[in-house]
């Protein structure tokens, strides 16, 4: 009970802190924070897939990119479309796409699955590149952020701070839901499937359907992140659906660590900050990112979150065992 109250207080404190940011940060940093929150959702969605369900996909960018493009295309072609409608359209599209692609690919396991997701991502990329009339091809699509229609009133979210608040509330709540999700029946089901899928089957769980639902769900979350990415930059190009975007999410998740729910959020933070600074200093920043990635995988396989947890336990003098999967963390948190 005490634990439970603690987490509610924690959440409220976090949001209050977030709400104060526009008064503390400069526009430039606030803009970066907005980007971090959006990418945090993307990273969290990937972690649900990899860290929780144990599904290694190299095609997460297809959903991110699809969400991003559908939002841009919808805003370009539908006159007077409101911001949330655009987001809903792109969410719905990625749900359908996730379901169809998942039905096709989830028959295959392990590295076959990983390779097939890579192939599908390449296919999406090729379509986005060639279908110039819709996606703008290499030129990309520029949009203007629509107004936020709340039924009784319309709000402009064109300023950095108003858009930040929108993202803080909407994307923040989505991430919060993802956290909650890991405690729900479905969240536990996918987690336990990774632990012992056979036993789950004999306990009445349809694991194939569960995996499909999870794949669809995480795809849709990535699509949502993509839609907000479009709204944030007011521009989308084939980069959003390219393998680079998959690499980006892999990096975020590995930097942060798959072992905890919040690790990838930390990863997104580090990634975006690094990207912004490194890319100003050197045009070789992808190389540095690559080196960091290799270093993390080789020497800090649990990611930053693992390191932080270890240090924390060290200080508190408590020597309870800590595993690699999110399962262990679950135990301490619930």
């Amino acid at each position: 009970m005490k634990q439970k109250n603690n987490s509610y207080i924690g959440i409220i404190v976090l949001f209050l802190l977030g709400a104060l940011m526009p008064f503390i940060l400069k526009r430039y940093h606030l803009n970066m924070l907005t980007e971090i929150i959006i990418f945090a959702l993307y990273a969290v969605s990937y972690n649900l897939l990899l860290g929780y369900a144990g599904l290694l996909s190299f095609g997460h960018a297809m959903f991110f990119g699809l969400g991003a493009f559908v939002a841009a295309v919808a805003i370009t072609h539908i006159q007077g479309l409101t911001l949330l409608s655009a987001v809903i359209i792109s969410f719905a599209t990625t749900v359908i796409a996730g379901f169809l692609i998942g039905s096709l690919l989830l028959r295959h396991k392990g590295s076959y699955f990983a390779l097939l997701t890579l192939a599908f991502n390449a296919l999406f990329y090729a379509v986005a590149t060639k279908w110039h009339s819709v996606t703008g091809g290499d030129d990309g699509l520029s949009i203007s952020r629509p107004e936020l229609n709340l039924g009784f009133t319309s709000l402009s979210v064109s300023s950095v701070s108003s858009f930040y608040y929108l993202i803080l509330v909407v994307v923040g709540a989505t991430i919060l839901f993802c956290w909650y999700f890991t405690h729900t029946a479905m969240g536990k089901t996918v987690l336990l499937m990774r632990e012992n899928e056979e036993r789950m089957k004999f306990l009445g769980y349809n694991t194939n359907i569960s995996r499909l639902i999870l794949f669809t769900f995480t795809g849709a979350l990535a699509g949502l992140a993509g839609a907000f990415y479009t709204l944030h930059f007011q521009f989308v190009s084939i980069s959003a659906i390219s393998i680079d975007m998959t690499t980006a999410v892999l990096l975020m998740v590995f930097i942060g660590g798959t072992g905890t729910f919040w690790g990838p959020i930390l990863g997104a933070f580090v990634y975006i900050v690094f990207q912004n600074y490194l890319s100003n200093i050197t045009d070789r920043w992808p190389l540095f990112m690559g080196i960091i990635f290799v270093f993390m995988v080789l020497y800090v396989p649990g990611g930053l979150s693992h390191t932080i947890m270890t240090i924390r336990q060290w200080f508190s003098g408590r020597k309870d065992n800590h595993g690699d999967g999110p399962i262990k963390v679950e135990e301490t948190s619930s």
């Binding site: 404190v13 976090l14 802190l17 940011m21 940093h29 930390l266 932080i308 924390r312 948190s333």
Partner: peptide
């Protein structure tokens, strides 16, 4: 556990504010 998240994030936001050189 939860408290550590908050602490981490508080720390990070402070780090973000402090560490970044303010532009002239």
């Amino acid at each position: 556990m939860k408290r550590s998240i908050i602490r981490t994030l508080c720390f990070l936001s402070v780090a973000l504010i402090v560490s970044l050189p303010m532009s002239a």
